[in-house]
Structures are given as structure tokens and as C-alpha cells.
Amino acid sequence: MFNSYVSNTLEYDPELCINCGMCSTVCPHRVFSPDGKKAQLVNPKACMECGACQLNCPTKAIKVDNGVGCASAMMLAAVKGKKEVTCGCDSSC
């Protein structure tokens, strides 16, 4: 209950990996690590769901529900009844 960050929406299918190394390049939290044959998912808990790996994976081996992890934006969207959550950027992002 007291760790909301134990799991996330990141999914990786090593079967589809062609070892281009792009995920390890773009990930800012070292979630993936390059290996001899395939990218290794070494630290899935550190994923912040930014979506950079998914966008740049050439074989769609990575899936993640990406978005901005911002409580203010989510609550504001909920209050205004909007479905799409974007930061208004009057916040500190």
C-alpha cells in the first residue's frame, strides 16, 4: 500500500528484439541494458513511463502507456472533466 511505484505499464517482448540498442540509448533511467544478443530489461521498476523507448523501438517489442506523471495536471483534468491530461505549463515542469 505504501509504495505506489512498485509496478507500471512497461511490457517488453524479447522475442521481437533485434538488438538495435535504441532503448538503452533513449532511456533516462537505465531500465534497459545492452547485451550481446538482445536488450535486457534490467530495472523495470525505475520506468517512469515517458515512452521514449516505445516510440523508438523499430519492432514494437516495447509497450508502455506513456504520459506525464504529474498529480497537479491529473487533478486539474479531473476537476475540469477533461480526459486528456496535459500539463498547463504554468506549473514547474
Binding site: Y5, T9, P28, E49, N66, V68, G69, C70, A71, C93
Partner: peptide, 24 residues
């Protein structure tokens, strides 16, 4: 503190949502 999530470099959407539903 919860509103600080968007300013950090590591909070995931899933985790922040979970926090909102748990603690709000």
C-alpha cells in the same frame, strides 16, 4: 508534496495515479 510529482524526473503516471486514489 503530491503535487511535486510533475516536477520530478522519475514519477510514473501509473504510480502517481495510484497515489491520488490511495491518499486523496
Amino acid at each position: 508534496a503530491l503535487n511535486f510529482t510533475g516536477s520530478t524526473t522519475f514519477a510514473s503516471v501509473t504510480g502517481v495515479k495510484r497515489e491520488i486514489f490511495t491518499y486523496m
